[in-house]
Amino acid sequence: MIRIILLRHGETTWNIEGRYQGQEDTPLSPRGLEQGKKAALALKDVPIDRAISSPLFRSYETCRMAADYHGLTVEKDSRITEISHGKWEGIHADEIEARYPTEFHLWHTHPEQVQMPEGENLEDVRKRCREAFDEYAEKYDGETILVAAHDAVNKAIICDLLGLDMSHFWQIKQDNCCINVLECDKGIWRIVSLNNTAHLGYLVSGIEQKGL
Results as ranks from 00 to 15, higher is better:
Ala137Ser: 12
Ile80Gln: 08
Glu208Ser: 11
Lys155Ala: 07
Lys44Asn: 03
Pro111Asn: 08
Asp68Gly: 01
Asp68Cys: 04
Ala93Gly: 09
Arg64Ser: 15
Asp185Tyr: 07
Leu6Ile: 02
Trp170Ser: 12
His199Ala: 05
Tyr202Gly: 01
Ile2Cys: 06
Gly71Cys: 01
Lys173Phe: 05
Lys76Val: 06
Gly211Gln: 01
Trp107Phe: 14
Leu43Trp: 06
Met65Gln: 13
Ala149Cys: 11
His199Thr: 08
Cys184Lys: 13
Ile91Gly: 13
His105Phe: 08
Ala67Pro: 03
Phe133Asp: 10
Ser29Val: 06
Gly32Ala: 05
Val181Trp: 08
Val153Gln: 03
Ser53Phe: 09
Gln115Val: 08
Arg58Tyr: 03
Gly32Pro: 11
Ile4Met: 06
Arg50Tyr: 09
Glu82Tyr: 05
Asp94Trp: 08
Arg128Gln: 09
Val181Thr: 14
Lys37Cys: 05
His150Val: 11
Asn195Leu: 03
Asn196Pro: 05
Glu118Gln: 14
Arg31Ala: 13
Glu97Thr: 04
Ile16Ala: 15
Trp88Pro: 12
Lys44Tyr: 03
Gly22Tyr: 03
Asp25Pro: 10
Asp25Gln: 07
Glu112Phe: 00
Arg128Cys: 02
Trp189Ser: 11
Ile158Gly: 09
Gly18Ala: 05
Ile83Tyr: 05
Cys184Asn: 15
Ala156Leu: 07
Glu135Trp: 00
Ile179His: 12
Val114Asp: 04
Gly211Asn: 02
Glu61Leu: 10
Val125Cys: 01
Ala137Arg: 07
Gly36Lys: 00
Val125Met: 02
Ser205Gly: 06
Gln113His: 06
Trp88Thr: 10
Val114Ala: 01
His110Ile: 07
Arg130Gln: 14
Gln23Val: 15
His150Asp: 07
Phe57His: 09
